[in-house]
Amino acid sequence: MAMEDIKKAIVEFAETNKKTKFYFKDIEKAVQKVIPDAKMREIKKACTELINDGTLIYFSTGSSTMYGLKGRGMTEDPE
C-alpha cells in the first residue's frame, strides 16, 4: 500500500512540476514532503516499478541520469 502512495506522489510531482526531467534526489525530496517517513530505498523501488510499467522513462546524458514522465515533454530526441 505504502508503495502505491509513493508511486502516486512521484507521478503527481512529475505531472505538476514545471520541469520535465528530474534527478532522483529531487523526486526523493518531493515524495518526502508528502510522505515524510518514506525511505530512500522505497522511493528507488517505486521509481523502478514506474520505469518497468512504462510510466517513467530514463533520460541519460551518459554521465548523469534523470527521470521523466513518458510523453510529457520528453521525446526520444533531446531537443
Binding site: F59, S60, G62, T65, G68, T75, E76, D77, P78
Partner: peptide, 22 residues
C-alpha cells in the same frame, strides 16, 4: 553531437548512451 537522450534498453537505466547529430 547533441548531449543525451532517452534511449535505453528495457528496464536498464545505463549501458546505452543516446547520441544524436545536430
Amino acid at each position: 553531437w547533441k548531449h543525451g537522450g532517452i534511449v535505453g534498453v528495457f528496464g536498464y537505466g545505463g549501458g546505452v548512451i543516446g547520441r544524436y547529430s545536430d
